[in-house]
Simulated assay, not measured.
Amino acid sequence: MPALTERPAPVRHAERLRRFTAGERWVHRATAALMGIMLLTAACLYVPYLAELVGRRSLLVTLHEWAGIALPAPLLAGLASRAFRADLGRLNRFGPQDRGWVRAALRGHHRPSEKFNAGQKLYAALVAGAALVMIGTGLILWFPSLVPLLWRTGATFVHDWIALLIGVLVIGHVWMAARDPEARRGLRTGHVSRAWARREHPLWEEES
């Protein structure tokens, strides 16, 4: 009888994991572009030095208004993607492991997370809520003749302060991304190394 040869054990871990589909990446890029236009035009409209340097206020106002109105469009288009809907579900779930992640992060400790950690979930929730408020107050300011003066005054106050909050959140988001080349690669190519996933998102790596 021919000698039995031992079969090699199946490879359990692939070299790379698929983190985002092409559709999800384009939703992120389009949203980031619109948000960038809004923040840059807002800065040029409200910071005197930039306003004088750039000029063309009417053009800036038009770009700002239409970028704000178009902001939900990438997300709505992304709902056609099953993967995007699944990731929205992940972002909307805040479980016990997320509360543990927050406590560990506040103490400077590392904590296992799912595909998205609690910080990413909180960021997404804050930006989404703030964007809705910005669109609502922005529409009031866009059509001032349709609402009372008191509404316009309140909308201006809320719009300005929420814009500042969004600016701080986005700067923090970019700063965190700048510190993690592998996370940026995941958004650029759709794939990340399994070693990175095991280190940063082990609960997701186990199920992938």
Rank of each mutant, 00 (worst) to 15 (best):
3 A>C: 03
4 L>P: 01
5 T>M: 12
8 P>H: 05
9 A>S: 10
10 P>S: 09
11 V>G: 01
11 V>L: 13
13 H>G: 03
13 H>K: 09
17 L>I: 06
20 F>N: 09
22 A>I: 05
22 A>P: 00
28 H>L: 08
30 A>F: 14
31 T>P: 06
34 L>H: 01
35 M>I: 12
35 M>G: 15
36 G>K: 05
38 M>N: 13
39 L>E: 02
42 A>M: 11
43 A>F: 10
43 A>W: 09
43 A>R: 05
46 Y>E: 11
48 P>K: 11
50 L>C: 02
53 L>D: 02
53 L>Y: 07
53 L>P: 02
54 V>M: 09
54 V>F: 15
56 R>K: 08
58 S>F: 07
60 L>A: 12
61 V>G: 03
62 T>W: 14
62 T>F: 10
62 T>C: 05
62 T>S: 08
63 L>A: 11
64 H>A: 10
65 E>G: 06
68 G>A: 01
74 P>E: 07
75 L>P: 02
77 A>F: 14
77 A>P: 07
78 G>M: 05
78 G>S: 07
80 A>I: 03
83 A>E: 12
84 F>A: 00
86 A>K: 13
87 D>Q: 04
87 D>I: 00
88 L>C: 06
88 L>D: 04
95 G>K: 10
96 P>D: 06
97 Q>M: 14
97 Q>R: 15
100 G>Q: 11
104 A>P: 13
104 A>W: 15
106 L>E: 09
106 L>Q: 09
108 G>T: 12
110 H>S: 08
111 R>D: 09
115 K>I: 11
115 K>L: 12
116 F>C: 01
116 F>R: 01
120 Q>F: 07
122 L>H: 00
122 L>T: 00
126 L>E: 04
128 A>H: 05
132 L>N: 04
133 V>A: 14
134 M>C: 06
136 G>C: 04
140 I>W: 15
145 S>I: 04
147 V>I: 01
148 P>F: 09
150 L>A: 15
150 L>T: 11
154 G>S: 07
156 T>Q: 14
157 F>Y: 14
160 D>E: 13
163 A>G: 13
166 I>G: 01
166 I>E: 04
166 I>P: 02
172 G>A: 03
173 H>V: 03
174 V>E: 04
175 W>S: 09
176 M>G: 00
180 D>V: 09
180 D>G: 06
180 D>E: 14
182 E>D: 01
183 A>D: 12
184 R>N: 14
186 G>A: 08
186 G>F: 10
188 R>C: 12
188 R>V: 13
188 R>H: 15
189 T>P: 05
190 G>P: 03
192 V>W: 09
193 S>G: 11
193 S>D: 09
194 R>I: 03
198 R>P: 01
202 P>I: 12
203 L>G: 00
203 L>I: 01
203 L>V: 02
204 W>N: 06
205 E>K: 06
208 S>P: 01
